[in-house]
Design a protein around this nucleic acid. Sequence first.
DNA 1: GCGCGGTGGTGCGGTAGCGCACAGACAAGC
DNA 2: GCTTGTCTGTGCGCTACCGCACCACCGCGC
Lengths: 235, 235
Amino acid sequence: MDRTAPGAAANRLLAHLPRRDRDHFVRGCERVDLEFNKILAEPGDTMRHIHFPTGGFVSLLAVMPDGVPIEVALVGNEGMVGMPLALGLERSSGRALVQGAGSALRMGGAKFRRELQASPALRATVDRYIHACIGQLAQTAGCNRFHVVEERLARWLLMTSDRAHSATFHITHEFLAMMLGVRRVGVTKAASALQRRKLISYTRGDIRIRDRAGLEAAACGCYKADLAIYDRAFN
Amino acid sequence: MDRTAPGAAANRLLAHLPRRDRDHFVRGCERVDLEFNKILAEPGDTMRHIHFPTGGFVSLLAVMPDGVPIEVALVGNEGMVGMPLALGLERSSGRALVQGAGSALRMGGAKFRRELQASPALRATVDRYIHACIGQLAQTAGCNRFHVVEERLARWLLMTSDRAHSATFHITHEFLAMMLGVRRVGVTKAASALQRRKLISYTRGDIRIRDRAGLEAAACGCYKADLAIYDRAFN
DNA sequence: GCGCGGTGGTGCGGTAGCGCACAGACAAGC
DNA sequence: GCTTGTCTGTGCGCTACCGCACCACCGCGC
């Protein structure tokens, strides 16, 4: 993957654009930091920018009527945050929360829409990503219904590791519990089971994946299904 | 809402188009029957047509890696079946199953994409629907995690009643169990509780909603949230 | 009349996850 | 050193739902 504009290939979605479109697009963006725990959008917020993470990653959370949040999708440098803008709407329907600090390319909503009009390749790439995201949402809906905490935790760790591009990252049980929509002790129980099986290790929020293949086997099939969905959208 | 082309307003999504676009679009469609239990798409299938239900309604199901299906969205005459086509892809990622017999307007995929190019209003309307659908998927993901069968059943009955435009419709406990991803006896238990509370009545698959307001109170907030999502997308 | 398939209801033991409460372990700051 | 806050682990009773099995009822066809 050639890097004709700085950071162009650091977001894999933008890397799918033909060089000319990509260079033009990236030049129109500004580089911003994604700071840990920062909220990029709340339900009902007007979204000012679309973000293409280059490092770091962002959780998309549904906020239930009683205010309890749950993660429904995870966005790293393979995707973008701000799908509503690509669909002609301004208001976010969920919460977007920075999970892993890093950086992103961002562009104002109005400008982004002009770019979408101007570049069929951009439009096509963004649409494919939306398609993949819809698939991931549907997968997650089923996963939440059928799979036990230990499997879902394993899936989450793998997805996060992929997006962090690292076998280690930082997240507490408390936070994980929020993501998975379970109690903290549920995470503690599942995580210590995974640790006992020597698949992961952790202390005070520092998590390390020790046996990736084993963890994949411990995760529900949704992890592989997610990969397949992205693959089919962009193959 | 005026009916300048036959069936134009029978699909509320198409009814959002300016008259000229709508008439043109509807003339390019063919009218087809949606026959009960017919599968419009399986995961991985090439989608030949996009469908705009005019009567009848269609379940979108995620098929889990072990083959077990679960409903993730419900499409009536407020929507369309074939989102992937609108996003430049041909392969369905889930299963589309006719739940309520009726009819639809349909158009071939290639032609539909040409129409999307030609009519910004069509593109905008379809995009808004996709946005609403994403919201519904996220809501369902959370609902599946947090809410008990009785609440989810009530939500499903209300959503279905809305799409059937009727307080009565036909569906067995067995089938409902598949939609909700629970055992048949789980549905039996929840349904008889709702019946005891005089919110619904049923015999051998014939379901009637007797107290709509009561049923709304018995449903989880996801039902109202769904309505709000659609409303915000199209207000 | 009889059998049979489709539908709904019940019972029973098992388990995953819940709410709540409390205890230990480590880190950082004073 | 001591305190305070954060993080992780354990115990307990409870509930929703599970898998499995069996039964009752109804309508239809032979």
